[in-house]
Simulated scan of single mutants.
Amino acid sequence: MTAVGFLYPGHSAEDDYPRIEMLLLDSDVRLYVVHTDIGEDAHRVDALLEMGSPARLAAKVEELRLAGAEAVVWACTSGSFVFGWDGAHEQVRSLARAAGLPASSTSFAFAHAVREVGAARVAVAATYPDDVAAYFTDFLKAAGIEVVAARGSGIITAAEVGRWGREEVLELARAGDHPDAEAVLLPDTALHTAAYIPELEEALGKPVLTANQVTVWEGLRLAGRRARSKRLGTLFATRE
């Protein structure tokens, strides 16, 4: 069995994780989610820096160790990229030290997943306000990824994002797409997307990478496991 642990801030779209576990073709994969203290629910830089602070993450790693996790991922995009490229690296190094396990975050998951699907140019369709979305664009550029379009939606709280359904997700992806983009990125772990990925890719005609999808893929990658699923998009259909 392969067990991966996820530190998830608050409660919004954490049910994507058991859904993804069920959709994997490998029946011996277990995804364990532990909730961190979100602090203030706000897509605002100061609140996000506090949400992703080392103390908040370290406070919950023991639960994942006890669950037998082989790797841990900070399942929050904005609470990682807001630290910048170097700061996000230090964040996961601190998490790895605290957990005694290989560690990563959703922001790095996106950077690795973009390369996995063979994309060089991407479009970002974000739920965040524009100023927060710009931090993600800068993070991707630091990873050597060309961002040809970026769109924010001005949503302040994860709670509101968590209430979005199929129609809102499809509209977000369509609105954020660009003809030159080889993949479209939806970077909020508060957004329910696991049930819609094949439909999103069919509608856009290209790979779509969503936050909880890439977070699970990253955790499995850290654990040395290459799981596949026909219902989780291009990312889970590829294999080295």
Rank of each mutant, 00 (worst) to 15 (best):
A88F: 05
V169P: 05
D180M: 11
A158H: 12
E116W: 07
S78C: 04
E160D: 14
G87E: 04
A143V: 10
L140T: 13
R174T: 12
V92Q: 08
F110A: 02
L172S: 03
Y135I: 10
A119S: 12
A103S: 05
W164F: 14
Y128K: 08
V122M: 06
V124R: 03
F108A: 05
G162C: 11
F139H: 10
A99P: 02
W85E: 08
P102Y: 00
L185F: 07
F136S: 05
G87S: 05
T127F: 08
T106E: 00
H112T: 10
R115L: 11
R166G: 09
R174C: 07
D130W: 09
V169T: 14
Q91G: 01
T137V: 15
A123Q: 09
S80I: 01
V132F: 04
A113F: 04
A143E: 14
T137R: 15
A183C: 03
T157D: 01
A103E: 02
A109S: 09
V132M: 06
D138V: 13
P129K: 10
V184C: 04
T106H: 01
T77V: 10
G176W: 09
D131S: 15
I145M: 13
A173F: 01
F136M: 03
V132Y: 12
S153Y: 15
G165L: 09
G162H: 07
E90W: 11
A183G: 00
G118T: 10
V82S: 14
H89I: 13
L172H: 05
V124A: 00
V82Y: 04
T77S: 07
R121F: 10
E116Q: 12
G154R: 09
